[in-house]
Amino acid sequence: MGKNKTILTIFIFACGLLIILPIFFLVFSSFRTPEDVFKLSLNLSNLTLDNFKAVLETNILRAIWNSLVVSVTVTVVAMLFHAMSGYALARLNFPGKKFVFGWMISTMMVPFTVIMIPLYMVTKNLGLANSYGGLIIPMIFNAYGIFLFRQFYQDFPKELEEAAYVEGLSIAGTFFRLVLPLSKPMIIPLTIGFFTANWNNYLWPLIINQKEELMVVQVALANIVGGGYETAWSIVLAAALLSAIPTFIVFFSMQKYLVDGIKMSGIK
């Protein structure tokens, strides 16, 4: 049994290494000179920091800050709204439930490119163009989180809520005091998902914002890729690596809470 587990662990790590191989490539290439960028050798003697210096000369830090504001806000607000809706759809009985659920799911099925123009019109008419509001608010509403929370709450142990009702808590009180704090096992993965998705969002910020000082990181990255007569891939990859660091940080800091999930299941 123990031996099997060791073999399994080694197997998983082998697969994991295979998966991060392309990322190694990204990391190494971002330290290489423009001439060597495609060389796949493991020769580490010719590494340089010039690419990162070149990236830092652009306005990428300001863009990273903007992206942080947008992604954090969207994620925090979305978690709350989506958990509420998911709970209502999974646990509460009310007329029109099936329809509301179906309707919400159907909003996921429209390709973004098609609603891009009308979405721009709506947002502009709300006076949100060229503002953090325009970057943030339309991105909060997404049936993905609602759907996942609904599925999660379907299997949530009923006994806890019933105990809370007996103690005289209202439905809302039960949700906020009891259910929401216990939803961490799903909030954490979704936080990672929402943060990353918004961090990597490109098309929407591109069209809704004209202002240089509100430029988000992906638009800045696209400007570095450019479209000129000479693509400096080493600089592009360095910029890509730099712009991915906040997502890496979110991943690592969330790890702790993901592991917490195991202990929590002991409650049941």
Binding site: V69, T73, L128, S131, G133
Partner: peptide
């Protein structure tokens, strides 16, 4: 949440 919202309104108004 409220900090986020304040931030948001500020950004909206200044524009």
């Amino acid at each position: 949440l409220s900090i986020a919202l304040i931030l948001l309104f500020q950004a909206g108004c200044s524009d």
